[in-house]
Design a binder for these strands. Structure first.
Length: 820
RNA sequence: GCGAAAGUGGCGGAAUUGGUAGACGCGCUAGACUUAGGAUCUAGUCCCGUAAUCGGGGUGGGGGUUCGAGUCCCCCCUUUCGCACCA
């Protein structure tokens, strides 16, 4: 009778739900403050409750879950929380389409997704769940707003904003996608609109945000953030106009100031109307109108021929005292610097092209070293290299390395300018003209102006009885009993702010709400904060590199300066997973119909097979196209391992050599798996475990390891696979009569003695090509290795008749014989 | 245009960081077994030549450093991703 037939077949559907329920009852994943144990806060970016968990969610949660479990077995007190980023546009779109309240749609989705997360077998502590649309959550989002307001980190300003005419909302710059500047959600081309908006002063932290020295974040993200912040050093210089106005410009090349032969303002610059002379007025107004009609893509394409128009006015170059004409041109942008530039055509290619076209003076003032004297009339390109200053009055002859500094010093002495730093980063526009968001807790009073809602009146809740009309107006504006109120200061009639906050405000602090989601004395319990923060491991997609990940750092630093949190950074380590594409190698989307639903795979193969396949099928940091066929591989692995472990062991033919080899393989695998977990190389963990299983099957076939070695192999194996495939590991752990849950066991220690090899395979090369392999005792000396290599059959075949020039011995590894 | 990353079998991917290229898996080929399954097991599977032993070639292309290069350096090609008149 075949022993295999007695084994109950591996049936994930019967064991997985059983263990999920039991773990839930036991509170196996509850994480509590415990000062006696080292903590580990593992955080994955919170999902948006769009409806269903797809395979991409599993890809972003399951490997970090496995790593969190690994950390726990290593002795850390691990917190692995989950929540939902529940405000946002899709809920409103769904509300309009389905005629249901956004809350109903959102919370229905959350219920469904929470169940799906349970099926995944993730070690989520659901007691710590936080949902950003809960009043007890956004109460504190509002509280943070008031704190920022108190500390002058919020301001209100009328500003041109990107506006999506379809979603009827303003968009942050990072929410405008593509060369043709379309709305990130509906792809409608964006237009400009002037509105009073609330801003967070992110630029105040620009310099500090450039410092990554305390955090372990990927190079790629650091570069993206650095470019996004876009710091450049230079000077602000003030030019007087002949009409007594002042025009301030920012320049990175103050050393070229003596070559500034004209100025250019952006068409939207506030001084344009007053600077325009009567005879130029028609032409200027036409040009300004034209510029406003241009789409952003037309305006901002760098290879377009430059256009402009003379205002008729002149400014005085503060260092040469010369009259220089003031032009306007659309290549100067209001959104950077001061919206005005000094034009130095000899040393800036854009200014050069403009000057050539409109026949303006080109005056070189920087002479590159070791080159013939340059002449403005004959130049074909601007020279942007640094060099010795010429035609620069008192600074003539200043060498390249001192020129910028000397120019700034000179400007400051003359009080015509100051050294300054410019940034590409803008302040964060947080106002959204939408209903489904955190209401901005401000009341407008005719006599008192904007007044903060008193803290004890928080949260400002959203009215439930709103109408869902696709009119574009926020429903809050159409709700008089909510909108009209009294001033908290003077009691007179007043109006609520009807804008809500960007959802990135909610997600800037959710990691703090997880600490104590029921806490009512503040946004978080300081006791929990002191124990758990900062986040030890933060994982999520690269797409958040310049939005969420800058905002949350800003938020943390601002809170630190307000005395709310401690430490300079919220997330100590960041890692990005790649993107799982559809089987057609395209991005998964409902409209393409290529979304892979994990539920069907779980029904067929079980959560453990899906989890391990997700870790195995690609490098986690790269992702790639999904292939459902491949899951057969991890499915077979689990079935084979199940049978291998449950088959009765025949000890009769055990031999010590097989045992020793098995132990060596077990501990080698353990060392490898431990390292791979630390470095997020999940695919090699599964591969190593498969390899070890193959070795165990082989050991059993050739006669078997002794009971001690075999039991140790199984024990270590179950501990190693527990983080990846929690259900089957737990089931086998129990069936083998081991006590407790496998998930609270300790991570095994590598036995260094077991790793020791007594024989090595020495590779014999002749002129760099492998010609033989010799098995040698580890104790063999270099000379012995060399001798045996020279005498080996494979080597002799290729050294015969040749002179041996050199022999290189790499101890324990190879011998290379150089002969010709 | 500027910047970054990557390029390894039919496919996903390994390679202790300069030392046996292709681990592990999918797929494929052949065979075994059968209570005919969503099977399972065994063997093979980089390319060319060979019955086998064995030999030659091989990590996008070209060159270089080195006893030795997938790995380091230079040039080129391709792909992907950022940024894109940023003063």
């Amino acid at each position: 009778m075949n022993a295999q037939q007695e084994i109950e077949p591996y049936d994930p559907s019967s064991i997985e739900s059983k263990w999920q329920q039991r773990w839930e009852e036991q509170g196996l994943y509850h994480a509590n403050v415990d000062p006696d144990r080292p903590k580990f806060y593992a955080l994955t970016m919170l999902p948006y409750p769009s409806g269903e968990l797809h395979v991409g969610h599993w890809y972003s949660v399951t490997p970090p879950d496995a790593r969190a479990r690994f950390k726990r077995m290593q002795g850390f007190n691990v917190m692995f929380p989950m929540g939902f980023d529940a405000f946002g546009l899709p809920a409103e779109n769904a509300a309009i389409q389905r005629k249901i309240h956004p809350r109903e749609w959102t919370y229905g989705n959350i219920d469904r997704m929470r169940e799906q997360f349970r099926r995944m077998g993730a070690m989520i502590d659901w007691r710590r769940e936080a949902v950003s649309a809960d009043p007890e959550y956004f109460r504190w989002t509002q509280w943070f707003f008031l704190k920022l307001l108190e500390h002058d980190l919020v301001y209100r300003q009328k500003a041109p904003v990107d506006w999506c005419p379809s979603c009827n909302t303003t968009l942050a710059r990072e929410q405008v996608w593509g060369d043709d500047r379309r709305c990130e959600r509906c792809r409608t081309p964006v237009i400009r609109k002037e509105l009073e908006q609330w801003f967070f002063r992110t630029t105040r932290y620009a310099d500090e945000l450039l410092d990554f020295s305390e955090i372990d974040w990927p190079e790629r993200v650091r570069v993206l953030q650095t470019n996004w912040i876009g710091r450049s050093e230079g000077a602000n210089v003030v030019f007087q106009t002949e009409t007594e106005d002042e025009i301030e410009v920012f320049t990175t090349r103050p050393d070229t100031l003596w070559g500034a032969t004209f100025m250019v303002l952006a068409p939207e610059h506030p001084l344009v109307p007053s600077l325009t002379t009567e005879d130029q007025r028609d032409a200027v107004e036409t040009y300004v109108l034209d510029a406003s009609r241009q789409t952003a893509i037309q305006r901002e394409s760098a290879d377009r021929e430059k256009t402009g128009i003379f205002t008729g006015s002149y400014a005085i170059n503060p260092v040469t005292d010369e009259r220089i004409p003031i032009w306007i041109a659309d290549y100067v942008l209001t959104s950077y610097g001061t919206g005005a530039i000094m034009a130095v055509p000899a040393h800036d290619q854009r200014d050069f092209e403009f000057a050539r076209k409109y026949d303006l003076e080109i005056r070189p003032v920087i002479q590159p070293v070791d080159e013939p004297l340059i002449d403005g009339h004959q130049m074909e390109f601007a020279t942007t290299h640094h060099g010795t200053m010429v035609h620069s009055g008192p600074l003539d002859g200043t060498p390249a390395n001192e020129a910028v500094e000397a120019a700034i010093t000179y400007l400051e002495e003359k009080e015509a300018g100051v050294g300054a730093v410019g940034y590409r980063l803008r302040d964060w526009l947080i106002s959204r003209q939408r209903y489904w968001g955190t209401p901005i807790p401000v009341i407008y009073c005719k006599s008192c102006g904007p007044v903060a809602v008193p803290e004890d009146e928080l949260p400002v809740e959203l009215p439930e009885d709103v109408e869902w009309l696709p009119t574009g107006e926020s429903p809050l504006k159409l709700h008089p009993s909510w909108r009209f109120t009294s001033c908290p200061k003077c009691g007179e009639e007043a109006e609520r702010e009807t804008d809500t906050m960007d959802t990135f405000v909610c997600s800037s602090w959710y990691h703090l709400r997880y600490l104590s989601p029921q806490y009512s004395e503040g946004p978080f319990d300081p006791r929990e904060y002191d124990y758990w923060m900062p986040v030890d491991s933060y994982t999520g997609g690269i797409e958040h590199a310049t939005m969420h990940l800058i905002y949350t750092r800003f938020f943390h630093k601002a809170c630190r300066d307000m005395g709310i949190v401690k430490g300079d950074e919220p997330m100590q380590q960041l890692r990005n997973q790649g993107l799982v594409l559809g089987e057609d190698s395209e991005k998964m989307s409902k409209s393409r119909g290529n979304v892979v639903a994990p539920d069907e795979l779980v029904d067929r193969y079980g959560a453990d097979a899906v989890r391990s396949y997700l870790m195995f099928f690609a490098r986690w940091d790269q992702g790639g196209p999904w292939s459902s066929c491949g899951i057969e591989g991890t499915w077979r692995w689990l079935k084979r391992f199940w049978n291998l472990v449950l088959e009765p062991v025949e000890e009769s033919s055990a031999d010590s050599e097989t045992s020793r080899q098995l132990r060596r393989k077990v501990h080698q695998t353990l060392a490898q798996v431990t390292h791979a977990f630390e470095s997020y190389q999940f695919n090699t963990i599964v591969a190593a475990l498969m390899e070890l299983m193959n070795e165990m099957i082989r050991a059993r076939r050739v006669g078997g390891a002794d009971k001690e070695a075999w039991d140790e192999a199984v024990d270590i194996y179950l501990r190693m696979m527990a983080p990846i495939t929690p259900h089957i590991s737990e089931e086998l752990w129990q069936r083998l009569g081991k006590s407790g849950s496998v998930h609270v066991q300790s991570w095994p220690e590598v036995d260094e003695l077991a790793l020791v090899e007594d024989e090595i395979t020495l590779v014999v090369q002749v002129n760099g090509k492998v010609r033989d392999r010799l098995v040698m005792p580890v104790s063999a000396t270099d000379d012995e290795a060399k001798e045996r290599a020279l005498q080996s059959e494979g080597a002799l075949r290729f050294t015969d008749g040749k002179t041996i020039r050199k022999v290189i011995v790499v101890p324990g590894r190879l011998v290379n014989i150089v002969a010709n």
